[in-house]
Amino acid sequence: MPQKLNRWPARMDLLQSGTGLLLVMFIWGHMFFESSILLGHEAMYWVTRMFEGEHLFGRPYPLLVSAAAAIVLLLIALHALLALRKFPANYRQYQRMNTHMAAMRHMDTTLWYVQVITGFLLFFLASAHLLVVLVQPDNIGPYASSDRIWSGRFWILYASLLLVVHVHAGIGIYRLAMKWGPFSAASSGLWRGRIRLALYCIVAFYLCLGTASLITYMRIGAEHAPYAGERYVPTHASGAH
């Protein structure tokens, strides 16, 4: 009788891909919500309140935002733990990979290295961002966020996070498609080109969207700097109530 199979290598491979996919879906959705500021203060305020559950429960519960941040942080921790297995583990492996990559001048090999570097940076950048959301969930809004970004100088974190996370996500999705995609041998090359082109466009789109909204937050934050700390009061609240 064959001994019992150790299914953990399969589970870990699937989990690494699965957590990665979930995180990319999250960040791509997140970009649309945070860029609601491009539609105006009111739109961003509405989105903030929606995530605090106001439209569902009648009053805002910022704890919901903390809970979401905690889940994302856990997903990142799990993804990082699994991805760490693939990092070069010692100097010899680094040296071999560097020599190999430099000699090969091969796009996908180089992209993998970019993912190792961006992944490493995300340990810090993503954790810093999530920690703020986790402990100050009520500190999100048209003015609260803008003040943090401008007066609190968080734009430095968000600008680097924006670039790093989207490069990592874009390459990651491309690799996932090639890793699992049920393409036929004949059409695999065609799909590879299509997916790569699509992801170039998607990453470029999100970088533009993110930059535009970050600049908007910075502009609002700069204008609001003398009143930093004051919260946004929606126009309908001040008028109708």
């Binding site: 491979d13 693939k86 090969m104 091969h106 996908d108 090999t109 993998w112 690799r175 090639m178 890793k179």
Partner: peptide, 11 residues
Amino acid sequence: FGCMTLLGCQD
């Protein structure tokens, strides 16, 4: 499961 899909083999 060791394959990291660098695709050097294919190319």
